[in-house]
Design a protein around this nucleic acid. Structure first.
Length: 501
RNA sequence: GGUGCCAUGGCCGAGUGGCUAGGCAUCGGUCUGCAAAACCGCGUACGGCGGUUCGAAUCCGCCUGGCACCUCCA
């Protein structure tokens, strides 16, 4: 494979239901919008999947020298509990429950989301806009949609006229939904709702007197509908037409379908060129869901505090676990699967340390084995082939393990470095490190037992002191100093501290 | 009911017409004071029944089982 073939990226586009060659609208720039969380509760395993999936996509684009603007929003208004644009706002409900300001709820869970994402080594997006920070843009968009004739006001609320829109354009293309079928069997709404049709959705909702989250608008004191924030913010930061829109499979309908309709009605152009959807995580073969009560938060996972968990699993174990599957497949959670992931992760990290320490040793008495060198090249190509085939991290990981075998073999002397030749050796090392750290975003975690190990060394130090073995004492002291730790002999015993010099 | 998806060796999980995916576990070997790690070797897995084909896990049909969306969910 030639180096340029390593750039033939194919992505599965939900819109066409096919893998398509990725061609940036305006290279070398790539605009990507991904639906972030509604911040009314702690992030769970399900939030980790899209975050990690699109993080790797973000990283891979950068690795391929694209200039990426990655927008991932925070939804902090408009997402209602219950169905059909009725019911309380999720955030307002939580605020009432806790007797705090809605924005305190938002801040609290946004901070916690960031903390969990950082633990998972998910890079912050380029822009992370909030719905409440874009009320003006949303109102503006509603006005444009009304102008186009695809929305109507009713009792201070504004609804998107799905039936009218569908007469002129196509509604339901993304999720394979048919409007006529959806209309069948729905009850007559006369006098029941402000909507003309059940399939219509709110762009603006008039706030009831007791509703605490409200903004002034041309139609009423109220709040924007869920769906609109993503259309408004993607438009603002990425333009009317951008490269990629992503999110979880479950958002295809109605959220993304509504986004397409709104954006189209406003901008008269298809918002995203490629729609990417990650699949869901299941637990014992069943989807994780709020309503099923079987979801596990990331914090519970990291600390092992959940009845389904036999023990704690570290953030990198979770990341590794998620990357071992292709993002469009469901991924079944189990303790056994996570334990296996942890072992695999540690093996890869042991290799990472080796890779960083290995040096090429030229040796004229050893002939370069072309077969070995070619082998390295084909493994590296397999990693690219995997990533280019709709970000198949499972295949990329298989390649990583194949490289790891070679690295271990060189380290143990089974394969002399000189046999690979300098070029292949460097390819092996650099690709291993680059893919693990930069593309897959795996990093070393400080082992839980670091402090115990240090205590043990301190004990050894004390024992040496006891028998006046000052050569050893000085050696330990110097070694630890190099590592940023100083040993302190106090009246009450030996202590250690971080070197402040 | 409508619309989709999936069934791969002990477990997880790639693969979409012929060429060893990979990880974890197990077993045998090399190495080793012991151990661990590492390396080498070992698994004739593709839900069932038919069909297409020189050849199918991979295409088609039927059946069985499971899941998802259609309501909030990443």
């Amino acid at each position: 494979m030639q180096p340029d073939l390593r750039k033939q990226l194919k992505v599965y586009n939900t819109l066409s239901r096919k893998k398509e060659l990725f061609q940036a609208i305006n290279p070398p720039f790539v605009g990507m919008y991904v639906c972030g969380p509604t911040v009314y509760g702690d992030a769970h395993l399900g939030h980790a999947r899209p975050a990690i999936t699109f993080d790797v996509i973000f990283r891979y684009f950068k690795h391929q020298d694209y200039k990426v603007r990655y927008v991932r929003n925070i939804t902090d208004v408009g997402h209602l509990v219950g169905d059909a644009d009725e019911g309380e706002d999720k955030i307002a409900k939580k605020a009432k429950l806790e007797q705090i300001e809605p924005m305190e709820v938002v801040q609290h869970y946004t901070d916690r989301y960031h903390r969990d994402m950082a633990a998972l080594n998910v890079l912050p997006p380029s822009i992370e806009p909030r719905a409440t920070g874009h009320i003006i843009e949303q109102i503006e968009m509603i006005e444009k949609i009304i102008e186009s004739g695809y929305a109507y006001e009713s009792n201070g609320s504004v609804y998107f006229d799905v039936v009218k829109y569908n007469e002129d354009k196509e509604y339901g293309a993304l999720s394979g939904r048919n409007i006529d079928e959806m209309l069948e069997g729905t009850r007559n709404l006369d006098g029941v709702s402000d909507k003309k049709n059940q399939v219509d959705f709110a762009l603006w909702k008039k706030a009831e007197p007791e509703h605490i989250m409200r903004w002034n608008s041309p139609w009423s004191d109220g709040f924007p509908g869920w769906h609109l924030e993503c259309s408004a913010m993607s438009r603002k930061y990425l333009g009317d037409h951008f490269d990629i829109h992503g999110g979880g499979m479950d958002l295809k309908f109605p959220h993304h379908e509504a986004e397409i309709a709104q954006s189209h009605a406003c901008n008269h152009v298809e918002p995203a060129k490629y729609w990417l959807h990650n699949n869901l995580i299941t637990i014992n073969g069943q989807k994780m869901g709020k309503s099923l009560g079987n979801f596990i938060t990331l914090e519970e996972l990291f600390e092992g505090k959940h009845e389904l968990l036999e023990e704690a699993y570290s953030p990198m174990t979770i990341r590794f676990f998620i990357l071992q599957a292709q993002y469009r497949s469901t991924l079944d959670f189990s303790n056994d699967a996570l334990k296996a992931a942890r072992k695999g992760y540690r093996k890869v990290m042991n290799g990472l340390r080796l890779a960083k320490s290995l040096e090429y040793k030229a040796d004229d008495s050893i002939e370069v084995n072309e077969k070995q060198a070619k082998n390295i090249e084909s493994i590296v190509n397999s990693i690219y082939r995997g990533m280019n085939d709709d970000f198949n991290t499972a295949v990329a990981m298989a390649g990583i393990f194949n490289l790891l075998k070679k690295i271990n073999a060189v380290h143990s002397g089974n394969i002399p470095a000189a046999q690979l030749g300098e070029q292949a050796f460097n390819d092996m090392i650099s690709n291993y490190i680059t893919f693990i750290e930069d593309v897959l975003g795996l990093k070393e975690e400080t082992p839980d037992h670091f402090f115990q190990a240090l205590d043990y060394i301190i004990q050894d130090y004390s024992a040496a002191k006891e028998v006046r073995d000052y050569n050893k004492v000085d050696a330990i002291r110097a070694k630890l100093k190099d590592m940023g730790v100083v040993v302190k002999d106090t009246k009450t015993g030996v202590e250690w501290a971080y070197d402040e010099a």
